[in-house]
């Protein structure tokens, strides 16, 4: 039995502790918003937050996690799609097929949490998720929009 804290809730999961977090989320917990793209930490489709840090869950065995660590998935980023990153994504209508987008959004939210006003170079260096549909420019614009909106919120 493995104990995890996911989106604020304690979850006890009966699973081989070597199972990657990605598959525990998708299969044991039925949270399929986090996607499988490569399985080897190359594409970012499986990005979640672990203690606020964007993390590729496909190579993270649940045995490496403690019950105290806060895991946040796309389902828990906000209760209703209202996180500033999701709002910016909606405003700019970013997704195409959408398969990479939960990972993109989690990576972007992770970036902004640590760096509220990222430069273009910061974005290029930090967002290394693969999007085969080619949403990169809108992802970049949406990150900047989310940054500006959070600024406005904080100042207002």
């Amino acid at each position: 039995m493995v104990r995890l804290t996911i989106n604020g809730a304690t979850r006890d999961v009966d699973v081989d502790p070597e199972t990657p977090l990605l598959w525990v989320l998708r299969e044991q917990l039925g949270m399929t918003g986090t996607k499988y793209g490569c399985g080897v930490a190359l594409c970012g489709a499986c990005t979640v937050h672990v203690d606020g840090v964007a993390t590729r869950s496909c190579v993270l065995p649940v045995s490496a996690l403690t019950p105290e660590q806060a895991i946040v998935t796309i389902e828990g980023l906000s209760p209703d799609g209202s996180h500033p990153v999701q709002q910016a994504w909606l405003e700019l209508d970013v997704p195409q097929c959408g398969y990479c987008q939960p990972g993109m959004i989690m990576a972007a939210a992770g970036l902004l949490a640590g760096n509220p006003n990222p430069t273009d170079d910061d974005i290029s260096a930090e967002i290394t998720n693969i999007c085969r549909c080619g949403t990169y420019n809108r992802v970049r614009a949406a990150i900047k929009l989310a940054a500006a909106d959070s600024d406005a919120t904080q100042n207002g």
């Binding site: 949270m31 399929t32 918003g33 986090t34 996607k35 499988y36 998935t73 796309i74 389902e75 980023l77 799609g81 999701q86 994504w89 909606l90 209508d93 970013v94 997704p95 959408g98 398969y99 987008q101 939960p102 959004i105």
Partner: peptide, 13 residues
């Protein structure tokens, strides 16, 4: 778009 922002969109996988 909306369901693609929250993880609700269901893909075959």
């Amino acid at each position: 778009t909306r369901d693609k922002l929250t993880g609700k969109q269901v893909y075959g996988a």
